[in-house]
Write a protein that binds this DNA or RNA. Structure first.
Lengths: 223, 223
DNA sequence: GATTTTTTATGACAGATGTCATTTCGGCGA
DNA sequence: TCGCCGAAATGACATCTGTCATAAAAAATC
């Protein structure tokens, strides 16, 4: 008895290739293909798949909505969300609505199969890159909630300063930073001196720690 | 029309004090008090509260189970989980089962009220400390999945070395580390020198970055 | 165009940091 | 007791780092 899998994705190419992939493993059967949330719900009700592979972003009813309905309709069904790199808070919402796993599109066949099996057996499956994104999102949430409590009255940081903080957060020496942004080493030192004063820190190591924990590393300061 | 709140906690003291707290604000009404999941479900079905405040850890049916049932039974109900510091993966499971917020026991009255209002209005509420824990858990998940990929063949680190790495990760100078672990400053320097060689890093800043990103900061190396 | 202001640079300095060779110390087994 | 070993300490050294006063250059203001 093979595992019935429903595939939901609005991109035909992705849908079909996933279908073929699933179909080529005799432990699985494709219970259906849907290109939108509405159809997905209809098929899910009729076919009662064990597993749903679903894109988060879709027209009409998006993945999150669909997840909600399917989870409510069919007890015990497992839903694995497919994400691309750029989807963000969606991951959080999917998690909140009972998604059983997350997979990056572009995952290898082997990983895909393994993930489905894992989820079927009750484990949660998050592929590494997605996990990282999720944790970044939570980090940002934590920080943004914390705003207003701790870090006040820290002087405004200029783009240059932010950029240098970032480079320090990557472990660079003053010379390396110099080669990166083409200021003299002395100037870099002056900048850092100002950064330390503004952030009330003592040395570059503390700056690096601040850089990572503040989420500054995630931003873009291409000057 | 005040907001009906159901309070679920197996500790009488906590339950009653939360009850009084809620009751003292005229925007809220206590819809009931339950000391276990079973009662909570019964009361919830009967009273249809808008909000449930529920301990994660309870005998018989625990908070997670109860959350699942209540969420399925009563569409639109908001459930805020109460956690202590020590609860761990439970937070992940609660999130996965649709919890609408998390609060640390010991929160101030003001924060409690605000959180309830936030959740009622559709926002997610995670108190800062809890958010941090959640993100730590995800971090650990991400790392543990990633294990086997990146960091191999790095020489074994001694407990002393790990401890020093941790202190560097807290931004301490050699002198401060000296006062912390009572070695001479020179010895500390020697230790760091070895750490740098073992980890193939160049300076303490890179060690700090490594410390944070490797999850070493989360561990305990009380020597 | 002259004058502020901002940005970048310089040089001198003190202290922190990392490296290395060597020494001291405390056990621990022979 | 002796010698050995690893852990901890020392001292000398080169380098890196951060501070500060000041200067030069560039940009903005009038």
């Amino acid at each position: 008895m093979s595992i019935k899998v429903l595939i939901v994705d609005d991109q035909e190419l992705m849908r079909d290739s996933l279908g073929m992939l699933i179909d080529s493993d005799r432990r699985f059967t494709v219970a259906g293909l849907a290109d939108n949330g509405r159809d997905a719900i209809t098929i899910a009700r009729k076919e009662r798949p064990e597993i749903v592979l679903m894109d988060i972003r879709m027209p009409e009813i998006d993945g999150i909505e669909c997840l909600k309905v399917i989870k409510q309709d069919i007890p015990g069904i497992k839903v694995i969300m497919l994400t691309t790199f750029d989807s963000d808070e969606n991951i959080y919402h999917a998690l909140k609505n009972g998604a059983d796993g997350f997979l990056l599109k572009g995952i290898s066949k082997k990983d895909l199969i393994n993930s489905i099996i894992t989820v079927r057996d009750g484990g949660a499956s998050i592929d590494p890159k997605t996990a990282q994104r999720v944790f970044e999102i939570f980090e940002r949430m934590a920080k943004s909630i914390l705003v207003g409590q701790g870090r006040e009255g820290l002087e405004e940081l200029s783009p240059h300063e932010l950029r240098i903080i970032q480079l320090i957060g990557r472990g660079m020496s003053n010379k390396e930073i110099m080669n990166e942004i083409h200021f003299s080493e002395g100037t870099i030192r002056n900048y850092i001196s100002n950064i330390l004063r503004k952030l009330d820190l003592r040395d570059r190591t503390q700056v690096a720690i601040f850089a990572i924990q503040s989420g500054i590393m995630l931003k873009n300061f291409d000057i």
